[in-house]
Amino acid sequence: MATTAAVGLLLALVSAFTSAFAHALLKSGVNKLATLAWIRVVELLIALPLVLWMGLPPAMLWPWLLAAVAVHAIYQVVLSWSYAVSDFTAAYPIARGFVPIFTALLGMALLGDRLDGIALVGVALVSGGILFLAGKGAITRTGFIAAAITGLFTTTYTLVDAHGVRIAPDMLTFVAWFFLLGAFPIPLLLFARYGREGRVLMSRDRKAGLVAGIMAVISFAPALFALGLAPVGAVAAIRETSLIVGLVLGSVMLKEKLGWQRICGGLLVTAGTLGVIARTAFS
């Protein structure tokens, strides 16, 4: 059990590092919806040969696949709104800060996961450190609300994904079909909103979108596998180390100011993450 959890947490750590790059690329795109559409196109191209090879998933998996696609689509729309109204280094930490503790508690209540008191303290440190990173006055009320709603949907899709991965006949079936089905809502929304101009927007954001799509697949596929191997609260906490990379990217790539408060918050996150790893993987 400890070895399985350790593999899951390692996958979550891989996901954390690549996730920050994908989010920074999304923020750098001129039109966030067009960039998201490119991410979905990349996922479609990767998933299509896999599902043709595997065939249809079992009937009992369809409700969870459709639920995952719906929740992710809503999350992506709210995420693009959040990044449109706030700095990346403010919106990203707040959006992620609500996730670990809520996911840990709901994972224990709904999925039967087990985390002891020390691991929960580590998860709480991660959440507290992330919220501290945002800093008072670093974000508007609208930006805070958008980021908080993003965090709520992140918690929701994490729990839905975890259950789907765990009841699937094998984890790859859920991952491949999720990427295939999830490829359609965002491009459809883009063209429903902008009409023929959607092609112009996608052409303009092609480079950022394609690279973000590759990074998103590299990020999210390991996260889905991790949810099948380790408690969702621990996986959520480990994935939030992405914000440390995100802060560096926001400062270097997007030229956003990085102050002492966010650095101190990053140290809290690191301490909490190390506690979760030690308690979950090796106890």
Results as ranks from 00 to 15, higher is better:
Trp260Phe: 09
Ile139Trp: 01
Asp116Val: 06
Ala2Cys: 13
Phe191Trp: 10
Glu43Arg: 14
Asp161His: 06
Ala226Asn: 03
Lys27Cys: 13
Gly164Ile: 03
Asp113Met: 07
Leu189Asn: 04
Leu106His: 13
Val71Gly: 07
Val41Ile: 15
Gly143Ser: 09
Gly228Glu: 01
Leu229Asp: 03
Leu274Ile: 15
Gly265Lys: 00
Val51Asp: 02
Asp170Tyr: 12
Ala223His: 03
Met1Asn: 12
Ala34Glu: 04
Ile101Lys: 00
Arg114Thr: 11
Phe17Ser: 11
Leu48Gly: 04
Ile238Leu: 10
Gly246Asn: 03
Asp113Glu: 13
Pro100Asn: 07
Leu125Arg: 04
Ile118Ala: 14
Pro49Gln: 09
Ala16Glu: 09
Ala221Trp: 08
Trp38Ile: 01
Trp81Asp: 01
Pro187Arg: 05
Arg204Gln: 13
Asp205Pro: 11
Thr155Ala: 11
Thr155Trp: 03
Thr4Met: 15
Ala236Gly: 13
Gly265Met: 05
Val217Glu: 13
Ser219Gly: 13
Ala281Phe: 06
Ser15Cys: 15
Lys207Ser: 12
Phe179Pro: 00
Phe282Glu: 10
Ser28Arg: 15
Ile139Met: 15
Lys136Asp: 06
His72Glu: 15
Ser82Gln: 06
Glu197Lys: 15
Ala73Ile: 00
Gly198Ala: 06
Leu172Gln: 14
Val217Asn: 09
Tyr92Lys: 02
Thr270Ser: 09
Val269Asp: 00
His72Pro: 04
Lys257His: 14
Gln76Val: 00
Ala208Met: 11
Pro58Gln: 04
Ala6Trp: 05
Val200His: 13
Leu44Tyr: 12
Met253Cys: 09
Val232Asp: 02
Leu268Phe: 11
Leu50Asn: 00
Arg96Asn: 07
Lys255Asp: 07
Val30His: 15
Leu201Tyr: 03
Arg40Asp: 02
Ile277Ala: 04
Ala84Asn: 10
Gly129Val: 01
Ala162Tyr: 01
Ala67Thr: 14
Leu9Phe: 05
Leu254Thr: 13
Ala216Phe: 09
Arg206Thr: 09
Ala278Gly: 12
Met253Thr: 11
Ala84Met: 00
Lys136Pro: 08
Pro185Leu: 05
Ala109Ser: 14
Gly117Asn: 09
Val7Met: 14
Leu110Ser: 06
Pro63Leu: 07
Gly112Ser: 11
Leu254Tyr: 12
Met108Pro: 05
Ile46His: 07
Lys136Gln: 10
Arg239Glu: 03
Leu106Glu: 04
Leu180Trp: 04
Ser203Met: 07
Thr3Trp: 11
Val217Met: 15
Leu26Arg: 04
Ala134Arg: 08
